[in-house]
Amino acid sequence: MTRRLSYREAMREAMHEALAGDPRVFLMGEDVGRYGGTYAFSKGFLEEFGPERIRDTPLSELGFVGAGIGAALGGMRPIVEVMTVNFSLLALDQIVNSAALFRHMSGGQFSVPLVIRMTTGAGRQLAAQHSHSLEGWYAHIPGIRVLAPATVEDARGMLAPALADPDPVVIFEHAGLFNVEGELADDCKVDISSAKVRREGRDVAIITYGGSLPKALAAAETLAGESIEAEVIDLRVLRPLDTATIAAAVAKCHRVVVVDENWKSGGLAAEVVARIMEHAFFELDAPVARVCSEEVPIPYARHLEEAALPQPEKIVAAVKGLLG
């Protein structure tokens, strides 16, 4: 059996299930309680689970993310919500200097079973301080797992294994996906370790994740109309990267476009391309192309914001450039 629901509903259900199923789980963040969540992910939770477990925090990202780490060390399973990835920079010290390295630095004595969720990405005219995609930075750090659910299935399914992970997991939810609807199987179970083929093809592999996945699928649809069969790979897990699935797609299609809302310089797409060089170089028939954000802070005006971001037309053009 399947049913239709939105990304937002899927994430809400996932949190509801976690809260109902494990007394150690609690939700903490700015306006998660009385307000119902900045994006209404936790609407109704305060009434159902109470203020101890649905914890509104002051505006102090460093403090409450660090408190989440401490609570995890103390035997709880916190879900800490940070409003956007831009604000998470205020908490970066605790994530990078404590959560990510406690296990190793303590010689294996202390794991940090913490889940941090945050909104990422542009496309809503929120300008430069609410629109960036910095998940590539997080994917740089050993000791944390980085997830980017791009489908309703992953929005519903990734939280449970993330909470079961004894180490810190950071989940990036692209704001452009919240109202996307999809079919969900009743017995939906997903892993948090592998990339997934979202569309089969043979002429070119489009490797992407998160908010760029619908754009890549739209581009593949356009290309199909011109008899170009694009395979679309959803990375899903940005750290550790599933190199085997990436290499298999290269071996199958021999041409690759990497689509990533990060900037090119030092971004995640650069890492994917480097993995291809290391693991599948001789399978390539053409240099790997990238479609990323332009190297500017994301602007407010709609036409400028659209021009700054990866778009289906840019992906189509990049594919055609490879096919000559």
Partner: peptide, 14 residues
């Protein structure tokens, strides 16, 4: 300090 605060939170909740 944030870690200690969280450890305190866990002890209280538990």
């Amino acid at each position: 300090l944030p870690l200690a605060t969280g450890l305190g939170l866990a002890a209280k909740m538990r």
